[in-house]
Design a protein around this nucleic acid. Structure first.
Lengths: 260, 260
DNA sequence: AATGTTGTGTTCGCTATGCGAACATTGAAC
DNA sequence: GTTCAATGTTCGCATAGCGAACACAACATT
């Protein structure tokens, strides 16, 4: 956890397998904008040598995690086994899913559950009705925590030390003109969230998107997951969200409290 | 490319990084039934030595892909970056999602898209309305191909060689009394699927679940993905499915043909 | 309480493994 | 046709990762 004297260059930790780190780096080199990569592309993106990149790619190919057409490498669906091992292992998603579906059915709006990873939120379950965001979001999707209701609902309940660290390093990048970019304003928003027990975020992530989120406080008092409901801003006011949706979210959150 | 004389034990391939293989094996050792594992558990499950398991687990922990509480290791959400790199990289899911949402909105039923990985189907996108299956299914979930409409829609269009191999090795395990378990009956079902261009599966995966699926035939003639609609068997007859849903699925499939 | 037994995590010398500089190869530029 | 830049591949060498051996803890057995 706390970083050791940070012997940065990992000089020679007998218990560290550098090959695994590089292999994972290679996997992560593939993303939305780069679905197909040559050996050299991967080398450049990851910073490892071409010779090494080649070995890792060929290894992934031999294990059927990747495909190779003679020039381009691309990942295969088998790669999903890795991430999915977590999803089902945490089983969070399976436990939360029914609640989201219930909420979505009752409200006709999209609901999601997310956890915090680093400074991003990651969706772990989702029940979408119609498409409300411009980008398609699904389980596994990431968004910056600072400008989402889910993120603020979790952040507001983090331990003081962790929160302080976050506030120091975070860059409050504006996604719309409404995004809070001033740190003290942001801090006030988090305090408000904590005192009222929910977060409403109005078009700070995307135009026309309004979202309300509540934390799920676990038995040990910690918060690792939050639930939300999103709707088009034009269709539903913030006040209405609070009136109609908050009780539903609160009730689901309360029940989950004793399940997780 | 073509597998060499299959020197099975990968004796000493200069281009194969064994450490990566073992690392991935370790990650996959975590699943729904075993979210938290000790060093020795992992060693037993993967077949690698305890000393090695320890190195890989500590490596994953240092890279924040795993957590360690002094006794148990568990995966962290960061692991999702690996699988998700694929999902977005393939961007299949992003492209298909709008179609599914359209279909679900028009019919009020759940629709999904899946690809084939080995002998399983893997959901790559999904638009769920109400909960129809007993188990929660989401993107990344796996089901045996043989007893699902999605699976049959894809299988029916595989190259003869690949299909032959599948038929030889597959065990047609019954999930309900209605599951087809006889290989020649199964083969006939696949032929029917191919000639009529869609698959309907009635309660072969789960009681009360009826599903219709169509393949998405790509420009090159290959089929890697299929779309489906599922509903409770009691509410909608197979005939009605064909009448009302098939045209919608066909039309989406046709459009996707030119996008993928 | 002393002694085996079984399962756990950790060390450390040895060698197979993965490293990358150096070498091929391709293909674009003129 | 020659140059040049960029890509992919080889192979001798150092070291990273291997696992037998060790140490330790938790129970049974006498």
């Amino acid at each position: 956890m706390q970083d050791q004297p940070t012997e940065d260059q990992g000089v020679g930790d007998r218990d560290f397998v550098a090959s695994l780190e590089k292999g994972l780096l290679v996997i992560e080199a593939f993303d939305a904008s780069r679905p197909r990569l040559t050996l050299s592309d991967v080398a450049n993106l990851t910073g490892i040598t071409r010779a090494a990149a080649r070995r890792y790619l060929l290894t992934l190919a031999k294990l059927s995690y990747a495909e190779f057409d003679g020039r381009y490498f691309s990942l295969t669906p088998r790669i999903l086994r890795l991430g999915y091992a977590y999803l089902s292992s945490a089983s969070l998603s399976a436990q939360v899913q029914p609640f989201l579906e219930r909420i979505s059915e009752e409200t006709g709006e999209s609901s999601s559950a997310a956890i915090l990873d680093g400074d991003d939120i990651v969706y772990v379950a989702r029940s979408a009705t119609r498409r409300i965001m411009s980008i398609g979001l699904g389980v596994g999707s990431r968004l910056p925590a600072h400008c989402t209701a889910l993120g603020r609902a979790i952040l507001a309940y983090q331990a003081e030390g962790a929160l302080k660290g976050y506030l120091q390093r975070v860059r409050l990048e504006a996604r719309t003109p409404k995004t809070i970019t001033d740190k003290s304003v942001f801090q006030a928003a988090l305090e408000a969230t904590r005192s009222q027990g929910y977060a409403i975020v109005n078009e700070e992530l995307e135009y026309g998107l309004r979202s309300i989120a509540v934390p799920v406080v676990q038995k040990n008092g910690r918060v690792t997951i939050a639930l939300n409901l999103s709707a088009q801003a034009g269709r539903i006011s913030a006040e209405e969200m609070k009136e109609r949706f908050l009780p539903l979210l609160k009730s689901a959150s309360e029940t989950l409290r004793y399940m997780l």
